[in-house]
Design a protein around this nucleic acid. Structure first.
Lengths: 335, 335
DNA sequence: GTGAAAGCGCTAACAA
DNA sequence: TTGTTAGCGCTTTCAC
């Protein structure tokens, strides 16, 4: 590895001269700067990032902790985060909590030792269910900034990026009501998460507000141990009166659609389906699923922006919660 | 941030004593060790990783560069890599090339300055098409080890993890032939990649070997600018004689299946479909797609193992190419 | 315009 | 058993 020292020796100048020259200091003569830069280029010199970071107490690295990268939502969020971070000259260190509190805690601990300047994090399911978020607040206490996205907690005081889950589900339900649907079922496997609760409430409120809707709310809360497909298929098979489905997680909408096709239900004539997802999750169905689009790319980008603002002291002392707009995208599974 | 210096001052001992105590050196008295450790724990001391890395010239960090994280194959590979790396006490810095050579090169450059101990990389499409791999060899020349996975190149001398693409496609085609299929079409959008070529050759060889197969090979090479769905749909619509499909990329198989259902083709009675993918890509179709499973998790794990072996000097001078077994998984779209 | 020296936080050879 | 010192590669203040 080529170091400043090597360059200095070759050029018979001091290390500090070389350093300054490479940083275009106006203390150094143009001539020297040129000579130094020429040799640096020739020898393919690259400043050792560890040394610079150590010296400056600044790593230009963000720790990103996501619950499950096999979930397309998080994959896309990571994509957006990486793109935006790179744009600003930051690297990302990626950790996966796999929905467990222990791994989340572990990653936080392991990176909060000078490895990263801050964190972008979506809370693990286990953490959210137990509502045990001390490990996260511990990091905050050490003055390491964190931006929470999607899955957040009121018990944590930091910057956050969310979508209007309540409003989005409300709007989707309202749409089905306007279509004249009489039996709308909500399907999901994320009732325990902050976002799941909000979406469920949005659905409930919309039904409540509908004066001419006679059947009560009906929720199929998918059980973990059992096949989601079997549960959804049996729902559709057993009850022919269902004419609307709101799927509040990533995949239930697609499953419902596949089962509806299999059982020859006319979609959307006799049955409307709206899923929750980013635009291009499981995009190859025919007909195409109507969805509440989460603008995942914007979520990731906003998270990075918020964190960098915090790191560069461009933010007020108070914490920001940024809400990314959702959009109801009507494709082929709604009228 | 708590440092050794803080601990040393509080305990009125030297910094090196503290350092040694924390590392359980037998130069230090049990008593001192205990006192040091107690205070360290109390103050939540964490050794600064940058300093340790700088000192030891060892970062315990792996740079992972993948072409496209929205492709489920790479998401899963990343998942496996993160899991395995974490298990061995390594972090991963993730970079996305987005299939471009420039970003791939950039990431390599930016991390080869002491940030990582080595790389795990799958070659970007642009790099593979142009067969311009000097930037990768440059890194190798600097004695930074690289493990290539999935998309590899003969022009790069390093450890590699691949699957038997030729054999897998051969086996899949053979299976359809044994089913008695008379008109088997290959669909794909990755003919330009190393893996795509190998898979295509496997298909061709299988047809060639089949004495009683009268129609020639037929390949639908999906054009980039146009909709894959439209191209596949028109194939199926225009030619009713097609009774077998081998899809060599991640998603074409699912698209073909959806279109077949839409056009009321009996699957698998009148049309067999085999896709290429990991087990749980787009898993919610009904019927379920038969696939060549790539054992993506094993690919990721093997990549980490190979790299760590190299880093820890446990490997011979020569380079290893590890081939991960594929498996033809027959689900519902084959007889 | 250039260089010496201190120091970021840590490890490790050597001295006491 | 403990402490001193040098040094990883870099930046930056201060002196020349």
């Amino acid at each position: 590895m080529v170091t400043l020292k090597h360059l200095a020796e070759q050029l018979s100048v001091s290390i500090s001269t070389v350093s300054k020259a490479l940083n275009n200091s106006d203390e150094i003569s143009p001539d020297t700067i040129e000579r130094v830069k020429a040799l640096a280029k020739h020898l393919n010199y690259k400043p050792n990032k560890l040394a610079v970071s150590l010296k400056k107490s600044k790593t230009f690295t963000i720790g990103v902790i996501v619950p499950n990268i096999l979930n397309h939502f998080f994959a896309k969020a990571l994509y957006a985060i990486e793109m935006e971070a790179t744009k600003h000259g930051y690297n990302i260190i990626t950790c996966l909590s796999n929905e467990t509190r222990s791994k989340e805690d572990n990653s936080l601990q392991l990176l909060s030792n000078g490895s990263v300047d801050g964190f972008i994090l979506s809370i693990a399911e286990e953490t959210q269910i137990k509502d045990n978020i001390e490990h996260i607040n511990d990091i905050l206490k050490q003055n390491i900034p964190i931006v929470l996205f999607d899955r957040v907690s009121d018990l944590i005081a930091c910057d956050k990026v969310i979508i209007d889950d309540f409003g989005a589900a409300f709007e989707a339900t309202e749409y089905l009501l306007k279509e004249g649907r009489k039996h709308i079922v909500l399907i999901g496997d994320i009732e325990e998460l902050s976002v799941g609760k909000l979406r469920t409430n949005g659905y409930l409120k919309a039904l409540e507000d509908a004066s001419d809707y006679s059947s009560g709310p009906e929720i199929l809360s998918l059980k973990r141990g059992e096949s989601a497909e079997a549960q959804i298929e049996s729902l559709l098979r057993d009850d022919n009166s269902i004419d609307g489905i709101i799927a509040i997680d990533n995949v239930s909408g697609v499953i419902a659609l596949q089962k509806a096709i299999k059982h020859k239900r006319k979609v959307p004539k006799d049955l409307s389906i709206i899923g929750f997802s980013d635009e291009n999750v499981l995009q190859f169905t025919d007909p195409k699923l109507s969805t509440v689009s989460q603008h995942t790319f914007d979520i990731g980008r906003a998270s990075v922006e918020l964190l960098l603002a915090r790191l560069e002291d461009r933010t007020p002392k108070t914490h920001t919660t940024k809400t990314i707009k959702t959009k109801l995208i009507l494709r082929d599974t709604t009228l």
